[in-house]
C-alpha cells in the first residue's frame, strides 16, 4: 500500500472541543499573534530612536482607538501566553497531569490572564 493510501487515525475535528485541547491550540495561536504584534513595539522603539516626527506617527497610531484596540488584544494574548506558559513549565517539571488538576490549572490560567489584562489597562487609565 502506498504511503498516500494508508488508513489514517481519526482527525482532530471528530473530537468534541475540550477546555484542555482548546487552550492548547490557543497557546500556539497567541504565540503566532504575539510574534506579529511585537512588530508594533519594534516600530515604537525604532521610531523613538529615529526622531520626533517618526515618534509622533507611531505614537499617533498606537494612541488611536484602533491602535489601542490592537494593544488591548495584544495584552490579552500576552497575558494568556504568559500564564499558560507557566502552566506548561509545571507540566515540563512533571506536575499537574491529573485530569482534574489540568482542568483546574486551565481555569486558573484563564482567570489570571483576564485579571492581569484588566489590571494593566487600569494602570493605563489611571496614568
Amino acid at each position: 500500500m502506498s504511503a498516500h493510501n494508508r488508513p489514517l487515525s481519526p482527525h482532530l475535528q471528530v473530537y468534541k472541543p475540550q477546555l484542555t485541547s482548546v487552550m492548547s491550540i490557543c497557546h500556539r495561536a497567541t504565540g503566532i499573534a504575539l510574534a506579529a504584534g511585537v512588530l508594533l513595539l519594534v516600530w515604537w522603539v525604532v521610531a523613538a530612536a529615529a526622531g520626533p516626527e517618526a515618534f509622533a506617527t507611531a505614537h499617533g497610531f498606537l494612541g488611536s482607538w484602533f491602535g489601542m484596540l490592537i494593544l488591548f488584544g495584544f495584552t490579552g494574548a500576552l497575558m494568556y501566553h504568559l500564564c499558560n506558559g507557566i502552566r506548561h513549565l509545571f507540566w515540563d517539571a512533571g506536575y499537574g497531569f491529573e485530569l482534574e488538576t489540568a482542568y483546574k490549572s486551565g481555569w486558573m490560567t484563564l482567570g489570571a490572564a483576564a485579571v492581569l489584562t484588566v489590571v494593566a489597562w487600569i494602570i493605563v487609565a489611571a496614568g
Binding site: P52, A56, G63, L78, L116, A120, W121, I123, V124, G127
Partner: peptide
C-alpha cells in the same frame, strides 16, 4: 507591561 502601562501616553 507594568512600566509601559504606567507611562502610557508619554511624550517624545
Amino acid at each position: 507591561v507594568v512600566s509601559v502601562a504606567g507611562l502610557a501616553g508619554m511624550d517624545y
